[in-house]
Design a protein around this nucleic acid. Structure first.
Lengths: 211, 211
DNA sequence: CATTGTGAACGGATTCACAGCC
DNA sequence: GGCTGTGAATCCGTTCACAATG
């Protein structure tokens, strides 16, 4: 199996996985790239190319077996074993993400949520207790955590992140509105909601501006 | 001023805006594309191209005036007038987004949050009262709302969205894990956090897989 | 003379078109 | 016959290199 797939491909893999989960729940056993195209909005050629990047998973003349393809995708993405993660920052967003992942996602598990504000520490978020930042390193090491979600304020984010790589974190989903400096081998994906919203507003205004 | 900018450019405009806000707060009046490059992580050439797409805002030999460029960007993105938006779905994420935008964002305003569950209706979220879905259309029309954030469960999302275009919504930030069918003139940006997280996990696992 | 603005070259991703296979 | 898998062609975005200019 190849690694180092283009980012554009990796972004789409979880979409395929989601569709397959739905199909399997509805007892659909075979799906064509054309049908997948309708479900996803990506072109059929693109879907075939994406999958072919990792191997030949389909049957010519027939399509893809949903169960088999799902297994393959889980393995490719790295969801075949449970992924532990930590949420850093227990504001409203951090709490929401913690609950969100606990309830909705069978592949990943939040093993800790951290904050420094004394009145938050000890609070139970759907079975997970908010702990002080000083416990962070220990939890990361004990649970072999690779993934962190950052929801602290922008001015605290860099400090929080600086120690993470040494503890063993290799990927960060960053909700803080700031660019993080991290070592080469740590992957950061920015998910600053203000930025998403503002670029959306550009498109919302497009109609009006033209007249 | 040109419209129909490439998506790749539009995605970066709010990043420039955020940096400029920070610079202005620190009384920096001039910034070069090279310095912006360091703050953003984009190349200096790319930044110049992005800005040049909408006009010539800099001064050769000097750089960009932060206040002037900020004004221009606000106008380009469409943030020169306040943007009203609605949050549809008052689960944990919907509530968090409502509070988040209220507190953090001077350019946009949440004018309504909606849910159908009777025990949520009437709850105050940072000054905004959760209202029933049946009030949605009225609020959208009264406040001239163009932008909606969708945080309802996947199986409810399409129903919720189907009426929105008629009410005047032209852009949707969709947190529901499903593809929305919308009319041509409505722009949808998917922000399914499960998908973001799963593609992140691909990168988190990269190291391990290689050995 | 430093820095912007931009045509030209490059590279990566998507689409096309069809060969390969069940 | 129908659908996958894939080289070739195309499109789009980024980088390069430099001309323009305050």
């Amino acid at each position: 199996m190849r690694r180092n797939a283009p980012k554009s491909v990796v972004k789409r893999l979880p979409v395929y996985l989601r569709i397959l989960d739905n199909l399997i729940r509805r007892d659909v056993e075979i799906i064509s790239s054309r049908a997948l195209s309708e479900e996803t909005g990506f072109t059929a050629e693109q879907i075939r190319k994406d999958l072919a990047y990792f191997g030949a998973f389909g049957t010519r003349g027939t399509g893809y077996n949903t169960g088999y393809l799902r297994e393959k995708l889980l393995k490719i993405i790295g969801l075949d074993k449970q992924t532990n993660l930590v949420v850093i920052g227990a504001g409203h967003l951090g709490k929401a993400l913690t609950r969100y992942n606990i309830s909705k996602n069978p592949y990943v598990k939040v093993v800790g949520i951290f904050d420094n504000s004394p009145e938050e520490i000890g609070t139970d978020i759907g079975g997970i207790i908010i702990r002080p930042m000083s416990d962070l390193e220990e939890v990361i090491k004990n649970h072999n955590v690779r993934v962190a979600m950052i929801t602290v304020p922008a001015d605290a984010a860099q400090d929080v992140v600086s120690g993470l790589a040494d503890s063993g974190i290799t990927a960060i989903l960053n909700f803080a509105p700031t660019k993080l400096k991290v070592p080469e081998n740590v992957y950061v994906h920015n998910a600053d909601l203000t930025i998403e919203l503002q670029s959306l507003i550009y498109y919302a205004m497009e109609d009006e501006k033209q007249h």
